[in-house]
């Protein structure tokens, strides 16, 4: 039977079906074994990548934001060339350049990937489930204010919302506004205010 596209083999299982995980786990194992047998993957290579992945959390992005809040020169570099600026934190964006979009008194930014799930993984780790959901992908570009309201974000009248649709060739990061009442705070304390969703634009930090 000729196939001209990828097909899923086997039974129908909803993601919450308890047997689903183990079936999919067999698929992952089958693929890894075949690639190891083909000499493409070395034994242990995938496990080492999983370990690396586990070390990347939104705390890394939060450090970058806190630096931008306290160091105007760094902020200028970050807005001019995101990929180069985050390299100062040892973060390598690879072939997908990072664009940092700054929230101001009059502009609120949020990011989405309508076609799939592009996300600044080297800075924030794995995207949350909702970022990859059909609902967020569909609605973020049509009714961003309604989506923001679902996330508990209500913007003052007159604040423009800019939605940035990521692609396979670039990544966005939102630089949130530094909350009032944080004068004199050091970087580490400021970073504690910056959640993952603040850097996607579905939350705003508060002190």
């Amino acid at each position: 039977m000729p196939h001209d596209g990828p097909h899923h083999h086997g039974h129908d299982h909803a993601p919450d079906d308890p047997s689903f995980g183990s079936r999919a786990a067999l698929g992952a194992r089958a693929l890894r074994e075949l690639l190891e047998e083909a000499g493409v993957l070395a034994p242990g290579e995938v496990a080492r990548q999983v370990e690396r992945m586990d070390t990347i959390t939104p705390a890394l992005g939060a450090k970058v934001v806190a630096r931008a809040w306290t160091d105007p020169d760094f902020k200028a570099r970050l807005l001019a060339d995101g990929s180069a600026a985050v390299r100062e934190f040892g973060v390598e964006m690879g072939t997908t350049p990072l664009y940092v979009v700054e929230n101001t008194e009059s502009v609120h930014n949020m990011i989405v990937c309508t076609l799939c799930s592009c996300y600044p993984k080297p800075l924030l780790g794995i995207p949350p489930d909702w970022y990859k959901s059909f609902e967020y992908r569909s609605r973020a570009v049509r009714e961003p204010r309604a989506v923001l309201a679902e996330f508990g974000v209500r913007l003052p009248d007159g604040v423009a919302v800019r939605v940035h649709d990521s692609t396979a060739d670039l990544r966005y990061l939102v630089l949130p506004r530094r909350p009032e009442g944080t004068e004199g705070w050091d970087e580490a304390r400021l970073a504690g205010l910056v959640t993952r969703d603040c850097m996607i634009g579905t939350a705003v930090p508060s002190a």
Partner: peptide
């Protein structure tokens, strides 16, 4: 290509990735 399509509320439940999911990502 679903950007702009009508859809329901954004589901907010999050799950910790299963080992096989991390493995696929890592591969």
């Amino acid at each position: 290509d679903i950007g702009g399509d009508p859809a329901g509320p954004v589901p907010r439940a999050e799950h910790v990735l299963a080992p096989w999911e991390k493995e696929v990502d890592a591969i």
